[in-house]
Computed example of a mutant assay.
Amino acid sequence: DKIAAAGNLIGRDVSGRGVQTTLLKLMEETEVPVRSMNDLQAQLQAAFEFQRRGKAKREAINTRHILFVVSGAFEKLKEQVARRVRQGQIGFRAEPVQVMDNELFQHVTTQDFIEYGFEPEFIGRLPVRVVCEDLDADDLFNIMKYSEGSLLRQYERAFRAYGIEISFEDEALRLLAEAAAKEKTGARGLLTVFEKLFRDYKYYLAGSGLSQLRVTASLVREPQRVLDRLRVEGHKLEAQMLEAGARQFAEKFGNEHGLEIVFDEAAIRRLVERAKAERMNMSDLCSHLFKDYQFGLSLINKNTGRTKFILNAEAIDAPDQFLSELVVQSYYPAAIAQRLDS
């Protein structure tokens, strides 16, 4: 429908009659060059061929066995057909014909296409005409579930990149299909509906700590309420994972260096806050904060014989200063004993 000649056009019709005339040559049996001579690569290749063989080899393809399929929405054509059908029912002897709006394309004639803007020679070379019906909710549901390259697979890969496994219930897919059918844009409506529904989910749930997302009917009906609940759950899970990471670091430190460090509750809370604020995982954060502790605590152990050290919030906010004070005080056993037992 985009190459139909425009009516009342002043100037060159670059997308209508001229394009149709050019396509006529292709739709008949003809030899078409594989490369355009205006293409720089084609010119260089022709020059090399001429130097090697004394003549340039012209590569072409024959269009005899090529099937040409053209398609379009033809929205204005529907109005034209409706007007013709109504005019044909005027008169005393005219028998009324009931034609539903979605059946108008079934009554399209060659003359309708010509009046729409197609050249008779062009439309005459398209003898087979098929009307595609609108996709309903059932069609869109099947497209989501069973089509190759389904939108569901695309969203599964997208959420998996955020560490989230997403799954869909059939009831939720039915609701999504019904919403997409109302868009009246075919299968493209699915993408519109999915993007509207999951845009905030991809933004807020990434890095939230959630590893599973089940798309249910309630999520489709009340996406914001479900998202708010999932964000709260995600924050709790993230905090739990970070706390576990801090304790794992302490355990690993003890196994590697023979020195036990214990984070008190205040230190755990502060570590979680810093990990979230600096967007670091707990292992990297602790490795950065306590990179010199194995040497400092080993020195304290040598001076005092202590093997267990309790780290509080001060050690998280200023780890180097905290360690320096411990090392200095390790040379005064009475002072360090009081410090470590506190």
Score class of each variant (00 low, 15 high):
Asp1Ile: 06
Lys2Thr: 05
Asn8Lys: 07
Arg17His: 10
Leu26Ala: 05
Met27Pro: 00
Glu29Asn: 09
Thr30Ala: 03
Thr30Leu: 00
Pro33Cys: 00
Val34Gly: 04
Leu40Met: 08
Ala42Glu: 01
Lys57Gly: 11
Glu59Met: 11
Arg64Glu: 05
Phe68Gln: 04
Val69Thr: 03
Ala73Tyr: 12
Ala73Ser: 14
Gly88Cys: 06
Pro96Ser: 06
Val99Ile: 14
Met100Phe: 15
Leu104Gly: 04
Thr110Met: 08
Phe113Ser: 05
Phe122His: 02
Pro127Arg: 00
Leu140His: 00
Phe141Met: 11
Glu156Arg: 11
Glu156Val: 09
Ala158Met: 13
Arg160Asp: 12
Arg160Ser: 12
Tyr162Ile: 14
Ile164Met: 09
Ile164Tyr: 08
Leu176His: 03
Ala179Lys: 10
Ala179Asp: 04
Lys182Glu: 14
Ala187Leu: 05
Leu190Glu: 02
Leu191Pro: 00
Thr192Asn: 10
Thr192Glu: 08
Phe194Cys: 04
Phe198Leu: 14
Tyr203Gln: 13
Ser208Gln: 02
Leu213Thr: 03
Thr216Gly: 08
Leu227Asn: 03
Arg229Ile: 15
Glu233Ala: 11
Ala239Leu: 08
Gln240Ala: 07
Ala250Leu: 06
Phe253Ser: 01
His257Gln: 05
Ile268Pro: 04
Arg270Gln: 10
Leu271Asp: 01
Lys291Cys: 12
Ile300Gln: 00
Gly305Asn: 06
Leu311Ser: 02
Ala313Tyr: 04
Ala313Val: 10
Ala313Thr: 10
Ala318Cys: 11
Phe322Asp: 01
Glu325Asp: 15
Leu340Trp: 11
